[in-house]
């Protein structure tokens, strides 16, 4: 019965081909360092899932942001777990993505024909840092407020257009409700959407080119 259903779906969706191309593709002899890309993808999904759960109770307004997070931590069953995973997962994701980049650099995997995969990966690293930066403001506590004040001020030191960039980031001259809501939008819609798209292309390129062989002694 299940086999029949599977056969019916496979004939129309090409599940077997999909499985072969993604999970059963030939790999060069590698080691655990080759798994960091998958680990990054896993963390991205984990952050997405826990983030969606947090948005059930979180309110992006200066009046309620802090109180709603206090409520998540103390008032909701397993709220501490959801926020804990999201909080620690964020730090872990930055580390894993960065080490993934180091691995690709050290094994020279960014070379022809994988330059585009590398460039998109750089974009993904920057977006991951952007997620960390925007997410940090959302609790709207003292640490978040001043970290973002400093962070946006640093952006303001860009020659010529710095002051303009700072105003765009803050949504005005100083941090306000506008800053919080635009950081929230960036954190839950703009950056994740951009990341999902880039991850799609990144994965397509990996499947298309296969993983690179580790360089030998002669390389």
């Amino acid at each position: 019965m299940w086999q029949k259903i599977y056969a019916w779906l496979d004939e129309r969706l090409g599940l077997n081909d999909l499985y072969k191309a993604t999970l059963d593709r030939p790999e060069p002899k590698g080691n655990w360092w080759n798994t960091l890309g998958s680990a990054s993808l896993f963390l991205f999904i984990l952050q997405g899932v826990t983030g969606i759960f947090l948005s059930v109770y979180y309110t992006p307004s200066p009046d309620h942001a802090y109180d709603s997070i206090t409520y998540i931590m103390n008032g909701v069953a397993f709220g501490w777990l959801m926020r804990g995973i999201h909080h620690w997962g964020a730090s872990l994701m930055v580390i894993v993505v960065f080490v993934h980049m180091l691995r690709v650099f050290v094994t020279a995997s960014y070379k022809y024909p994988r330059e585009l995969t590398w460039m998109i990966g750089v974009g993904l690293l920057l977006l991951t840092l952007g997620m960390g930066f925007t997410g940090y403001l959302l609790p709207w506590n003292q640490k978040a407020y001043w970290a973002t004040t400093v962070g946006t001020s640093i952006a303001g030191t860009v020659p010529w257009i710095g002051a303009f960039i700072e105003r765009v980031l803050r949504g005005g001259a100083e941090l306000s409700a506008l800053t919080l809501s635009r950081f929230f939008a960036a954190h839950i819609w703009i950056f994740p959407a951009a990341m999902a798209g880039l991850i799609g292309v990144h994965l397509y390129l990996i499947i298309k080119h296969g993983e690179s062989e580790f360089p030998g002694k002669d390389d």
Partner: peptide
């Protein structure tokens, strides 16, 4: 580990 607590998390206000 994620899914079961998530159910409790989502239905908590009703309980």
């Amino acid at each position: 580990v994620i899914g079961l607590p998530a159910i409790g998390y989502l239905i908590d206000p009703a309980l």
